[in-house]
Design a protein around this nucleic acid. Sequence first.
DNA 1: AGGAACACGTGACCC
DNA 2: TGGGTCACGTGTTCC
Lengths: 550, 550
Amino acid sequence: MDSGGWIVHGYTNGATATGAGNHGFTCGYAASSCGSWEFEQREQQFISSQIQHRLNEASLIAAISMHLSMDDDDDQSAVYGAAMVDDLLTPSPSTHHAVAAAAGSFPSSSSSSASFRSASVSYSPDTSSSAAAAAATGFYPELSSQVAPLLPPPPLVRNEPQPGRYTAGLPPPPPPPVTGGAFRRYARHLGPRRAPKPGACGQRMFKTAMSALAKMHMETTYRRRQYYYQQAAAAAEAAPPPPSGNNQLQHTMSERKRREKLNDSFVALKAVLPTGSKKDKASILIRAREHIRSLESKLSELEEKNRELEARLVSSPAAKNDKGETAAAEAGDETKREDLVEIEVTTTSGGSGVADAAATGGDQETCCTLNVDLRGGGGGGGMSTTDVVLRTLQCLREQIGDGASLVAMSTSAGSGGRPPSANLTLQLKISMSLSMDDVTMISPRNQMQHTMSERKRREKLNGSFVALQSRPYVLPPGSKLDKTSSILIGAREYMKFLESKLSELEEKNRELEARLVSSPAVVAKNDEEEAAAPPEAGGEVKRERIGSSH
Amino acid sequence: MDSGGWIVHGYTNGATATGAGNHGFTCGYAASSCGSWEFEQREQQFISSQIQHRLNEASLIAAISMHLSMDDDDDQSAVYGAAMVDDLLTPSPSTHHAVAAAAGSFPSSSSSSASFRSASVSYSPDTSSSAAAAAATGFYPELSSQVAPLLPPPPLVRNEPQPGRYTAGLPPPPPPPVTGGAFRRYARHLGPRRAPKPGACGQRMFKTAMSALAKMHMETTYRRRQYYYQQAAAAAEAAPPPPSGNNQLQHTMSERKRREKLNDSFVALKAVLPTGSKKDKASILIRAREHIRSLESKLSELEEKNRELEARLVSSPAAKNDKGETAAAEAGDETKREDLVEIEVTTTSGGSGVADAAATGGDQETCCTLNVDLRGGGGGGGMSTTDVVLRTLQCLREQIGDGASLVAMSTSAGSGGRPPSANLTLQLKISMSLSMDDVTMISPRNQMQHTMSERKRREKLNGSFVALQSRPYVLPPGSKLDKTSSILIGAREYMKFLESKLSELEEKNRELEARLVSSPAVVAKNDEEEAAAPPEAGGEVKRERIGSSH
DNA sequence: AGGAACACGTGACCC
DNA sequence: TGGGTCACGTGTTCC
C-alpha cells in the first residue's frame, strides 16, 4: 500500500538537535508510494509507531502521539464522546488542564472507549433518529438538527454527560426554530445507516472528530488570542478570523444545496432520457449526449426527407406554376371556388332516358340518364375530363349513396379533349325507396341539395375556424400558408406550445414541491389531477438519489 | 502569516497519563480563522505554541508536537523540504536515524526554515512548474505529475537532496506509466496556484495529517491488537484493517478517475448543446434537458408533418396500388391486396387506340384504352359500380396526374348492377412528356392547375385535420358533429383545457415559489423566467435548511 | 468581501 | 471482496 499518510515517529531521546532533548517527535506524511505502514511499539508509550515515515515539506516537523481506541460499544462511547466534547468545548483558558485530564483519563477508559461506527450516528440530523444518535449528534451541533442548525458560538454547556443533553440543550439559542425537514434527503443517507461496517469503522468518526477539533481549535485560538496576548503583527492578519466558524457552516450548507441542485438536475435529465440500464451519473451524461446526437441526426434526416417530399409534391401538381394563377387562382378561394369550376349539369330525367331507360325496366327501380355538360366557358374551363367525371361521380355517390347506382356511363371529350366542352352521360338506376317523386330530377335536385348542404357545412367549418382563430398563437410571419391552414397549424402549434409549457411547469412544480416536501411543511395538497406528466419518471421516488434505487 | 497549520504544543512534563511521562505533546489545529500563527518561543525549544486544544471523540487522544517555521524564503525551504522528503522516504529501517537527524537539523536551520505557503505548493504536480515547486511536490508524490501519477512502491531513492529529484526518480516504478495527460487537468488546478491565500491555509494539511493519523491509528490498533492482546472479538473485526493503507490510495485514484470521467462527460455533453451563457454544471444539465425536449418536440412535429406529407402522396398513388403504372407500363402487376374488390385490369397499350387515337393525332401523345373488369367474386360484390368507376378514376388521376387525360369512357354494369361483374373501358390520352404537351392543352391547363392546387389545399387541410385529430382531447361521445367540426371544436376545447390547467399550474407554482422564497433560504436560483412570483407570505419559514446562516 | 463553482479526499455502500 | 458509485465536508479559485 502505497497510500500516503501521516506517520508519527516518536523519539524520546533521539532528537538531539532540539533544545529540550527529552522529546522530539517527528511527523511526516507518508507518500503514496510507501507500501504499508509498519508500526513499532516502543518504550512505554501505548502507541509508538516505528515507521519509515516521511517528513516532507521540510516546514513540518511534528511529533504526534495519539491514541485511538477502536472498541465497539457504541452507545457508551457516543455518550462519552459527547461529554468529552462538552468538556473540550469550554473556551476557558483552563482547557489545557481539561485536555490533559482527558488525555490522562483515556487510557483508563480504554476499555469503554468510544467507537464511532459511522457518520450516520454522528450526524443523524433526522429528528426521528434515536436518542442515542441524537446524543452522538451533539458532536456536530450545527448539523445535528434542522431545528437548531447552527450555533456559531457553541452553547458551551458544560459537563453534561447525559446522552441527548446536547440536542436538548441546544435548541434554545437558534433564533428560527425551523421545523421542517429540508434535509430529509440527507437523513436518508445519514440516519438509517447500518452498522458502520466493522472493518473500516472509526475513520469517519475520526474525521468528524478532527473536524470538530478543528472547529474547536479555531474557536480556541481565536479566544486565546483575544484574551491573552495579541501581537500587533498578528492582529494585522488576525482580522479575518472571526467569520471562520460561521462561514464554514454556511459554506457547507451552500455546498450541500449546490449538490442537491445538481442531483436534481440529474434526475430531471434522466427523466427525459430513454430509459437505460445504467443509472450512473456519467452514464446519464453520456446517454444524454448520445440521445441529443441521435435526435439531431434523426431530425436532420427527417427534415431532409421532408424537403424532398415537399419538393415532390410541389413539383407534381404545381409543375407549371410559372404561368401564374391566371384566372383560376385569383378568384377568391375556397368558398367561391365552386363557382369557378362552373359545372353545369343538365339532366334528362324521367323514365325515358336518352337511351335505354327501358332496358332497366324495373318497377321499383327507376332508371334515369344523367347528362352532364361541361360548359367550356370562355377560356376558363380548364378542367380535364377526368376531373369532371370524377367529381360528378363523387357527388353522385356522396349524395345519394347507394340509393343510386351507376349502370352505364360514357364520356366524351371534345375531340382533342381540349375544347373544354365535354359530355358525360350517366345512366343511373335509382332505387325507389328514396323519395319516388324526385326521381325525375334526381341529379339537379341532389346537386342543388348537395350544394346547399355543402354550403352549410362550409359555413359551420368557417365558424369553427374563426373560433380557432382567436387563439393567441400566431405563426411566424414568413409562413405563406393560407388562412385556414395557418389557423389549423397555428392551433396545433399553440397546443404543442401549451403542452410543452405545461409539462415544463409541471416539472418545475414537481421540483419545487419536492424541495418543499422534503421539508416537513404541510405544503398544499397538489394531488389534484396531474395526469398529463410523462409517467415514465413518475415511478421513482422523488428524492431517490440516482444510483441508490436498486 | 496566518495560514493555518499545525500548532505544536510541547509538554515536557504535562501529560501525566502517558506511561512515559517525559513527553506529552499536544497538537492543536489552527483553523483558518486564526489570523496568524503565534508561536511562542518557550524554554529552549525553537517553537512551542501553547494552545488550548480540544480533544474530542473521546477515542482520540493525541499529543502532537510539531514544528512549523513560517519564514518566507520559499526556495530554500522548498529545496530543503525536498531533501527532507527524500530522506524520509527511504524505507530502510535506518530511517529512524535519518529522521532524527533531519529533525535535529531543523532547529539549526530555523533561520532558513521552510515556509509552507500553501497547499498549492504542496501539490504543484504540473511538470512545467519550477524546480522548487517540483521539489515541494514531493509532498504529494502521487499527484506530482501526470507522467507518473502513481507510484505504489516508492522508488526509494535515497538521500538525494537535489530538488526535483523525486519527480525524476519516481516514474520507473508505476507499472503503467500513463503517459497521456489523464490528470493533466488536475495540473491546472494544482500547478499554477497562487499564494495559498494566507487566511485559510493549512486546513488541508491538517486534514491530510489527520487522515494519516487515522490511518496510522488504524494500523496501529490493528498491529497492537495483533501483537499484544488480541481479543477474539476484536480479531473478528480486525480482519479488514490491513488493506487500509494501500486501498486508500487506490481508492483515491479511482475516485479521481471517476471524477475525471464525469467531467469529461460533462464537457462532451456541453459540446453538443447550443452554446449558452452558463457554463455551470447544473446549467449544463438543465440546458441539456431543455434541448432534448425541444429537439423531441421539434422532431415529433416534423414527423407529423412528414406523415402528413406522405399521406398526401400515398393517398394518391399508393392508395390503390392496384392501378400500378397502368398505361405507362401495362404490366398487370396488380398487387393482390384488392382481393375483395377483385379488380382486374387489362390494358391495351399502344398508339392505336380504339377510337380516335387519330383524332388526337399528336405524335407525342399516346392513346390507350384501359379495360377494367370488375370481377364479381362469388357473393362478395358489395361494391357498386359507381364506386368502381370512382376509384378507378381516382387512381388514374392521382397516379398519373395530368399526364393522362380521359378522352372517353364507358361503363356497363351487369344488368341489375348487382351482379358484381362490371366492365369499364377507358380511353386515355397520355401525354408523352410532361413538357411538350403543355402547348396543346392551354385552356384546360389553368383549370387543371387550379384544380390541382385546390386539391392540394384540401389535402393539406385534411392533413392538418388529422394532425389536430391526434390531440388527446376527445369530445363527449354524444356529440353528433361531423368529423372535421368535431376535430376543430375538440381542438378548441383542448386548448381551453390546456390553458386553464396551465394557468392553474402557474398559479400554484408561484405560490410554491413564494413559499420557498419567503424562507430566508437562498433558494436555488430559479430565475429562469418566472417574473411574477409575488412573495406574499414572507412570514412562514418553511423548512429553512439554510436559515442558520444569518 | 462573500458567494458560487469546482476539485479533492474520504467514508460508506453495493454488487 | 474489491471495484465502482455516491455524498459529504473542505479548500481554493473566481467574480
